[in-house]
C-alpha cells in the first residue's frame, strides 16, 4: 500500500471517505464544537498530504490519522479560546435513546481531555490498551490508568448505565 510521492485527487477523496468519521469523532472529542472540529479535520488530512507518509496497511493509515488528529486538537486547545456548543445540536436520535445517549456522550465529552482519546479508541473503535498505547505514543501503564479513571468517573456519573461484565 505504499503511496507515491504525489497523491491524485481520487486517492485523497477515497482516503478521506475511509476515515472522515473516525477523524471527525476524535477531533470532536477534544474540541466539542463543529467549527473547530471542521478546521481540525481539514488540518489533519492536509498534514497527511504534506508529509506523504508511506502506509503499509489501512490500519497503519488509521493509526497515523488518529495520532495526528490528537496532536492537531491539542495544539488548537493550547492556542484558541473555544466556544462550547450545546451537545444537543450535534446529532438527532430517537427520543428514547436520546436522553441516555445525551447523558452518556455528554459525560464522555466532559471527561478530562487526556482520557477522551483512550475512551473513544477503546469503547468505540475497539482497540486494546496496548494498541491504544501504540497509537497515542503513550506508555501502556498510562493508558490503563486513564481508562480505569475514566471508567470510575463514568460509573460515578452514570451509575447503573455501565455494568461490569
Amino acid at each position: 500500500m505504499k503511496r507515491s510521492l504525489l497523491r491524485t485527487d481520487k486517492e485523497i477523496t477515497e482516503l478521506y471517505a475511509r476515515h472522515k468519521g473516525m477523524v471527525y469523532r476524535v477531533c470532536f472529542a477534544y474540541l466539542k464544537n463543529t467549527a473547530d472540529t471542521e478546521d481540525a479535520v481539514s488540518e489533519t488530512f492536509i498534514r497527511l498530504i504534506r508529509s506523504v507518509p508511506a502506509f503499509e496497511s489501512v490500519e497503519h493509515e488509521k493509526a497515523w490519522l488518529i495520532r495526528t488528529a490528537s496532536n492537531v486538537c491539542k495544539n488548537q486547545l493550547k492556542h484558541w479560546w473555544r466556544k462550547r456548543e450545546d451537545i444537543d445540536r450535534c446529532y438527532d436520535l430517537p427520543d428514547m435513546a436520546k436522553v441516555e445517549t445525551n447523558e452518556v456522550l455528554e459525560t464522555v465529552l466532559a471527561l478530562p481531555d487526556r482520557y477522551k482519546a483512550a475512551v473513544y479508541l477503546y469503547y468505540y473503535e475497539g482497540y486494546t490498551g496496548a494498541e491504544i498505547a501504540g497509537l497515542l505514543k503513550q506508555p501502556q501503564s498510562t493508558v490503563r490508568n486513564h481508562l480505569r479513571e475514566a471508567r470510575a468517573i463514568l460509573k460515578e456519573r452514570l451509575g447503573d448505565v455501565f455494568d461490569e461484565e
Binding site: 436520535l93 445525551n102 452518556v104
Partner: peptide, 8 residues
C-alpha cells in the same frame, strides 16, 4: 450509539 451520531 452516542458516538455514531458524531459525524460531519
Amino acid at each position: 450509539a452516542a458516538w455514531n451520531a458524531i459525524e460531519p
